[in-house]
Amino acid sequence: MTSLTVIFTGLLYVATIILIAGIAYRVYEYSRTPAPLVIPTTPAPTTNSGVVMRMAREVFLFESLFKSNKWIWLFGWLFHIGLALVLLRHIRYFQEPVWFWVEFLQPYGKYASFMMLVGLAGLWARRFLVDRVRYISTPSDHLMLALLIAIGMSGAMMTFVSHTDIVALKAFALGLVVFDLQPVPEDPLLLIHLGLVALLMIIFPVSKLLHAPGIFFSPTRNQKDDPRATRHIAPWATALERDKA
């Protein structure tokens, strides 16, 4: 067991724990914080199924962003769909045998890395070219894009340019899943890729990447429009009422 394997195994385990525990904690925090008033952005659905549809359109199609700005929508959607396909493709490294639909996605997932990179490049270009977006961009906004692009580039390089030892990589990944440590392949490109992914997982729960769980808790999108028919009241507000009675 090389020290490199120990370092990367440890890093990936720690990153996974931080990612899962961190997001779980945020979700717990968001869900436990009351929404005392009915504030959906109207026109809003009046039924639960309507709210599910609205949320689905936001999550899969970026409906509000489409209304807002076609360029941001295009680049943002390319990036996110590309990333989703790439992530689904990566499932193959963690299972044997591989599910048929993961097998099916393999060619799409490979080329989706280009969608992802084009989207990221477009979003980054806006941070320089549009004066309003330049004004609001912080160093972390730029670094986040740099990080994602570096992850995408290093991954795409291994797929299309300098193939890594995929058999050894799969043995390493499967070993992580069943806690049977296998040596990490000593390909610099792979090590960069894995290291940056671990970094992304670690900063996820303390960064703007929280928009991913956050959208599901956004009261302007997840509430239904029925305040005349249903009395909506938060626990802390009920207490105020009792004091007054």
């Binding site: 945020r26 509000s64 962003l65 807002s68 700005n69 941001i72 943002g76 979003l123 806006r126 549009v130 309003r132 977006v133 609001i136 961009s137 912080t138 906004d141 703007k208 929280l210 928009h211 956050g214 959208i215 956004s218």
Partner: peptide, 8 residues
């Protein structure tokens, strides 16, 4: 937490 500074 949720804002990503997208500019929309």
């Amino acid at each position: 937490d949720a804002c990503v500074h997208c500019g929309a």
